[in-house]
């Protein structure tokens, strides 16, 4: 279980996250939504332990992530960052295996199986020996997602999976596939957080949605409770409309609010 307790963070004197509290239970997928610069990625970095909160605490299964060593944290959570530029050219399988750094004690065959299974999950079986530099942007993104899934290993119960824009650069089918992989990780018992820009994708896969605006938590709850025209219009600064299509609510933004 991931608990964010009254967390605040600032870069120099610019406050980016202010007193955010929320929790993600085992088996739950929570989507962070908000405009650019709302503090979503910073909150994810705080949850990962990479950034230390200036106030408040982040607990993973009751332990303060700020006190844990990188190795101990890596065995309990995996992270997909927004950016990942590889300096030298690994193959796809080698890149995914790097995610299994903390699993090395389980043996090479375990790591190899975990890597191949993660590649299957993101639909990249057969890509093992391709060079990373020769992949498209979307394929690279899926390789990085596979790396995070590999790090999570086969026993995902009580671990955390933190995904910063897992659908960025992906076509609609692969965006759904990426979120389906995140959903499966939650169904396997992990606490999953995904920073997203598409409220429809968030509503389809998330158990709960956290809305962030100016570093503050503007809403947190089940999609049907949080997704509302007025709330989303205020959060994004764009006119929001919700229509019903075959029993599903579809969000779209016809124009920017001047």
């Amino acid at each position: 279980m991931l608990e964010i307790k009254n967390a605040s963070f600032s870069y120099a004197d610019r406050k980016v996250v202010s007193g955010v509290s929320l929790s993600v239970a085992d088996g739950e997928l929570v989507a962070f939504l908000g405009a650019n610069g709302a503090g979503k990625s910073t909150l994810l970095k705080l949850a990962s332990g990479y950034l230390r909160p200036k106030a408040g605490k982040i607990l993973l299964n009751g332990e303060d992530v700020a006190q844990a060593s990188p190795a101990a944290l890596a065995r309990r959570r995996a992270v997909l960052e927004q950016d990942c530029a590889l300096s030298f050219d690994y193959s796809v399988l080698e890149t995914v295996k790097l995610g299994g750094y903390s699993l090395f004690g389980n043996g090479e065959s375990y790591l190899s199986d975990a890597s191949k299974s993660a590649l299957r999950e993101v639909g990249l079986e057969g890509f093992e020996n391709r060079r990373y530099s020769e992949l498209s942007g979307g394929e690279k993104r899926r390789v990085q997602l596979a790396r995070a899934l590999c790090q999570l290993g086969s026993n995902r119960r009580s671990k955390a999976l933190l995904l910063d824009e897992p659908s960025a650069g992906l076509d609609p089918a692969h965006a759904h596939a990426a979120m389906a992989a995140a959903r499966r990780a939650a169904d396997d018992g992990a606490s999953v957080v995904a920073v997203l820009h598409d409220p429809n994708l968030a509503s389809s896969y998330a158990d709960k949605i956290a809305l962030l605006k100016g570093g503050l938590l503007a809403g947190f709850g089940r999609p049907e409770d949080v997704i509302a025209e007025d709330t989303l219009s205020a959060v994004y600064g764009a006119k929001c409309r919700i229509i019903s299509d075959a029993g599903r609510r579809v969000v779209y933004f016809p124009k920017k609010i001047d």
Binding site: P70, V79, E81, Y101
Partner: peptide
């Protein structure tokens, strides 16, 4: 050697993978 391999992902990703950068 293994830690330096993971560092090729960048400092932040290496930290997430468990490397004491």
């Amino acid at each position: 050697a293994r830690s330096m391999n993971v560092l090729l992902l960048g400092e932040e990703n290496a930290y997430h993978c468990g490397v004491d950068v």
